[in-house]
Amino acid sequence: MAQQLDRLKETPSQTAGPYVHIGLTPNICEIHGIYEEDLGTRMVNDKTRGERITVKMRIFDGTGAVIRDALIEIWQADADGLHNSPSEPRGKADPNFTGWGRQASDAETGVFTFETIKPGRVPFLDDRPQAPHISLWIVARGINLGLQTRMYFGDEEKANAEDPVLSRLEHQHRGPTLIAQREGDTYTFDIHLQGEKETVFFDV
Protein backbone atom coordinates (compact mmCIF):
# COMPACT_ATOMS: atom_id res chain seq x y z
CA MET A 1 0.00 0.00 0.00
CA ALA A 2 1.03 3.56 -0.66
CA GLN A 3 -0.34 6.87 0.50
CA GLN A 4 -3.59 7.99 -1.10
CA LEU A 5 -3.40 10.71 -3.75
CA ASP A 6 -6.76 12.03 -2.57
CA ARG A 7 -7.86 13.22 -5.96
CA LEU A 8 -11.51 13.71 -6.77
CA LYS A 9 -13.07 12.66 -10.04
CA GLU A 10 -14.49 15.32 -12.34
CA THR A 11 -18.29 15.52 -12.29
CA PRO A 12 -19.43 13.56 -15.34
CA SER A 13 -20.95 15.56 -18.17
CA GLN A 14 -24.54 15.22 -19.34
CA THR A 15 -26.00 16.63 -22.52
CA ALA A 16 -27.15 20.25 -22.49
CA GLY A 17 -30.40 18.94 -24.00
CA PRO A 18 -32.82 20.66 -26.37
CA TYR A 19 -33.62 23.52 -23.99
CA VAL A 20 -30.11 24.75 -23.20
CA HIS A 21 -31.16 28.25 -24.27
CA ILE A 22 -33.62 28.53 -21.38
CA GLY A 23 -30.64 28.40 -19.07
CA LEU A 24 -27.94 30.20 -20.99
CA THR A 25 -29.66 32.64 -23.37
CA PRO A 26 -33.19 32.95 -21.94
CA ASN A 27 -33.98 36.18 -23.77
CA ILE A 28 -33.49 34.35 -27.08
CA CYS A 29 -36.31 31.96 -26.18
CA GLU A 30 -38.63 34.69 -25.05
CA ILE A 31 -38.02 34.40 -21.34
CA HIS A 32 -37.70 38.09 -20.59
CA GLY A 33 -37.34 39.92 -17.33
CA ILE A 34 -35.05 37.52 -15.49
CA TYR A 35 -31.76 38.77 -16.94
CA GLU A 36 -31.48 42.20 -18.49
CA GLU A 37 -29.53 40.74 -21.39
CA ASP A 38 -28.07 37.37 -22.26
CA LEU A 39 -24.51 36.91 -21.10
CA GLY A 40 -21.82 36.87 -23.78
CA THR A 41 -23.83 38.73 -26.42
CA ARG A 42 -21.46 41.69 -26.54
CA MET A 43 -17.71 41.08 -26.68
CA VAL A 44 -16.62 44.49 -27.97
CA ASN A 45 -17.45 48.15 -27.36
CA ASP A 46 -16.49 51.43 -29.06
CA LYS A 47 -13.07 51.45 -27.42
CA THR A 48 -12.00 47.89 -28.16
CA ARG A 49 -8.58 47.77 -29.84
CA GLY A 50 -7.97 45.64 -32.91
CA GLU A 51 -9.53 44.75 -36.22
CA ARG A 52 -13.31 44.34 -36.06
CA ILE A 53 -14.56 41.15 -37.62
CA THR A 54 -17.77 39.19 -37.89
CA VAL A 55 -17.61 35.42 -37.55
CA LYS A 56 -20.43 33.32 -38.92
CA MET A 57 -20.56 29.66 -37.99
CA ARG A 58 -22.83 26.74 -38.79
CA ILE A 59 -22.91 23.20 -37.43
CA PHE A 60 -23.85 20.20 -39.58
CA ASP A 61 -24.85 16.75 -38.33
CA GLY A 62 -23.94 13.41 -39.89
CA THR A 63 -26.83 13.60 -42.37
CA GLY A 64 -25.59 16.95 -43.65
CA ALA A 65 -28.44 18.86 -42.01
CA VAL A 66 -27.72 22.15 -40.29
CA ILE A 67 -28.27 22.06 -36.50
CA ARG A 68 -30.50 24.79 -35.07
CA ASP A 69 -30.64 23.94 -31.37
CA ALA A 70 -26.97 24.17 -30.38
CA LEU A 71 -25.06 26.76 -28.37
CA ILE A 72 -21.50 27.90 -29.04
CA GLU A 73 -19.15 29.70 -26.66
CA ILE A 74 -15.93 31.21 -27.94
CA TRP A 75 -12.82 32.34 -26.07
CA GLN A 76 -9.95 34.28 -27.54
CA ALA A 77 -7.07 36.65 -26.90
CA ASP A 78 -7.24 40.40 -27.50
CA ALA A 79 -5.46 42.17 -30.35
CA ASP A 80 -2.14 41.86 -28.50
CA GLY A 81 -2.54 38.15 -27.76
CA LEU A 82 -3.53 38.66 -24.09
CA HIS A 83 -6.54 37.08 -22.40
CA ASN A 84 -8.99 38.99 -20.24
CA SER A 85 -8.56 36.49 -17.39
CA PRO A 86 -6.98 36.42 -13.92
CA SER A 87 -5.03 33.36 -15.09
CA GLU A 88 -3.25 35.41 -17.78
CA PRO A 89 0.31 35.80 -16.43
CA ARG A 90 1.79 38.01 -19.17
CA GLY A 91 0.02 41.29 -18.55
CA LYS A 92 -3.29 43.04 -18.56
CA ALA A 93 -5.54 42.52 -21.57
CA ASP A 94 -7.64 45.23 -23.23
CA PRO A 95 -10.31 46.07 -20.61
CA ASN A 96 -12.73 46.87 -23.43
CA PHE A 97 -12.69 43.35 -24.79
CA THR A 98 -14.22 40.42 -22.91
CA GLY A 99 -12.68 37.71 -25.06
CA TRP A 100 -15.70 35.51 -24.39
CA GLY A 101 -18.83 35.17 -26.46
CA ARG A 102 -21.91 32.98 -26.25
CA GLN A 103 -24.52 32.64 -28.98
CA ALA A 104 -27.49 30.60 -30.02
CA SER A 105 -27.92 30.19 -33.75
CA ASP A 106 -30.58 31.87 -35.79
CA ALA A 107 -33.62 29.64 -35.41
CA GLU A 108 -34.22 29.45 -39.17
CA THR A 109 -30.80 29.47 -40.81
CA GLY A 110 -28.72 27.87 -38.05
CA VAL A 111 -26.10 30.64 -38.41
CA PHE A 112 -24.22 31.74 -35.28
CA THR A 113 -22.93 35.31 -35.50
CA PHE A 114 -20.13 36.68 -33.34
CA GLU A 115 -19.05 40.32 -33.50
CA THR A 116 -15.46 40.33 -32.29
CA ILE A 117 -11.91 41.30 -33.18
CA LYS A 118 -9.10 39.38 -34.75
CA PRO A 119 -6.97 37.98 -31.92
CA GLY A 120 -3.22 38.41 -31.60
CA ARG A 121 -0.84 35.49 -31.32
CA VAL A 122 -0.57 33.39 -28.15
CA PRO A 123 2.59 31.40 -27.39
CA PHE A 124 2.66 27.61 -27.52
CA LEU A 125 4.21 25.61 -24.66
CA ASP A 126 7.68 26.04 -26.13
CA ASP A 127 7.10 29.78 -26.71
CA ARG A 128 6.73 29.50 -30.47
CA PRO A 129 3.87 31.78 -31.51
CA GLN A 130 0.63 30.05 -32.39
CA ALA A 131 -1.35 31.32 -35.34
CA PRO A 132 -4.28 33.57 -34.34
CA HIS A 133 -7.19 31.38 -33.33
CA ILE A 134 -10.48 31.31 -31.46
CA SER A 135 -11.29 28.46 -29.06
CA LEU A 136 -14.78 26.95 -29.32
CA TRP A 137 -16.99 24.96 -26.98
CA ILE A 138 -20.12 23.44 -28.50
CA VAL A 139 -23.07 21.96 -26.61
CA ALA A 140 -26.45 20.67 -27.81
CA ARG A 141 -28.96 17.89 -27.60
CA GLY A 142 -27.16 14.72 -28.69
CA ILE A 143 -23.75 16.00 -27.58
CA ASN A 144 -22.80 14.23 -24.36
CA LEU A 145 -19.62 16.15 -23.58
CA GLY A 146 -19.04 19.71 -24.80
CA LEU A 147 -16.96 19.63 -27.99
CA GLN A 148 -13.69 21.55 -28.04
CA THR A 149 -12.19 22.86 -31.24
CA ARG A 150 -10.46 25.93 -32.66
CA MET A 151 -11.08 28.29 -35.52
CA TYR A 152 -8.09 29.62 -37.46
CA PHE A 153 -8.09 32.40 -40.06
CA GLY A 154 -7.82 31.66 -43.79
CA ASP A 155 -5.90 34.85 -44.55
CA GLU A 156 -3.11 33.96 -42.09
CA GLU A 157 -1.42 31.45 -44.39
CA LYS A 158 2.10 32.02 -43.10
CA ALA A 159 1.15 31.87 -39.42
CA ASN A 160 -1.05 28.84 -40.04
CA ALA A 161 1.78 27.01 -41.82
CA GLU A 162 4.05 27.36 -38.78
CA ASP A 163 1.34 26.86 -36.14
CA PRO A 164 2.42 24.16 -33.66
CA VAL A 165 -1.09 22.64 -33.42
CA LEU A 166 -2.03 22.72 -37.11
CA SER A 167 1.35 21.43 -38.23
CA ARG A 168 1.32 18.45 -35.89
CA LEU A 169 -2.02 17.08 -37.04
CA GLU A 170 -1.35 13.51 -38.02
CA HIS A 171 -3.79 13.72 -40.91
CA GLN A 172 -2.73 16.95 -42.57
CA HIS A 173 -5.63 16.91 -45.01
CA ARG A 174 -7.96 17.51 -42.03
CA GLY A 175 -6.28 20.84 -41.19
CA PRO A 176 -8.56 22.88 -43.46
CA THR A 177 -11.57 21.84 -41.31
CA LEU A 178 -10.21 24.30 -38.73
CA ILE A 179 -9.77 27.26 -41.07
CA ALA A 180 -12.41 29.94 -41.60
CA GLN A 181 -12.67 31.66 -44.98
CA ARG A 182 -12.63 35.43 -45.22
CA GLU A 183 -14.87 37.60 -47.35
CA GLY A 184 -14.66 41.31 -46.53
CA ASP A 185 -14.77 41.61 -42.74
CA THR A 186 -16.64 38.33 -42.33
CA TYR A 187 -15.21 34.91 -41.67
CA THR A 188 -17.30 31.83 -42.35
CA PHE A 189 -16.67 28.66 -40.39
CA ASP A 190 -18.62 25.45 -40.97
CA ILE A 191 -18.39 22.71 -38.36
CA HIS A 192 -19.15 19.13 -39.36
CA LEU A 193 -19.84 16.70 -36.55
CA GLN A 194 -19.38 13.63 -38.75
CA GLY A 195 -18.54 12.45 -42.24
CA GLU A 196 -15.93 13.17 -44.87
CA LYS A 197 -15.46 16.74 -43.68
CA GLU A 198 -15.60 15.96 -39.93
CA THR A 199 -14.04 18.86 -38.05
CA VAL A 200 -10.96 18.16 -35.98
CA PHE A 201 -12.00 18.18 -32.33
CA PHE A 202 -9.61 18.39 -29.42
CA ASP A 203 -9.15 16.63 -26.13
CA VAL A 204 -7.21 19.31 -24.28
Binding site: T15, L39, D61, G62, T63, I67, W75, Q76, A77, H83, N84, S85, P86, S87, E88, P89, R90, T98, G99, W100, V122, P123, F124, L125, Q130, H133, S135, A140, R141, G142, I143, N144, L147, Q148, R150, P164, V165, R168, L169, E170, R174, L193, Q194, E198, T199, V200, F201, F202, D203, V204
Partner: peptide
Protein backbone atom coordinates in the same frame (compact mmCIF):
# COMPACT_ATOMS: atom_id res chain seq x y z
CA UNK B 1 -29.51 4.35 -26.47
CA UNK B 2 -29.78 8.15 -26.63
CA UNK B 3 -30.75 8.39 -30.29
CA UNK B 4 -29.79 12.02 -30.86
CA UNK B 5 -26.12 11.10 -30.41
CA UNK B 6 -26.12 8.89 -33.49
CA UNK B 7 -25.69 11.69 -36.06
CA UNK B 8 -24.15 14.22 -33.68
CA UNK B 9 -21.17 12.25 -32.37
CA UNK B 10 -17.74 12.86 -33.90
CA UNK B 11 -16.31 9.56 -35.03
CA UNK B 12 -12.61 10.30 -35.22
CA UNK B 13 -10.30 10.40 -32.25
CA UNK B 14 -9.94 13.88 -30.77
CA UNK B 15 -6.47 15.44 -31.00
CA UNK B 16 -4.52 16.27 -27.85
CA UNK B 17 -1.79 18.80 -27.12
CA UNK B 18 -0.55 20.36 -23.91
CA UNK B 19 -2.55 23.28 -22.54
CA UNK B 20 -1.50 26.69 -23.82
CA UNK B 21 -2.75 29.96 -22.37
CA UNK B 22 -5.74 29.69 -24.71
CA UNK B 23 -6.90 26.71 -22.61
CA UNK B 24 -5.51 27.70 -19.21
CA UNK B 25 -7.23 31.09 -19.11
CA UNK B 26 -10.96 31.64 -19.12
CA UNK B 27 -13.63 34.27 -18.52
CA UNK B 28 -14.43 35.28 -14.94
CA UNK B 29 -17.62 37.11 -13.99
Amino acid sequence: GYKSTVVRSPQRAPISFGNTLSEITGPVF
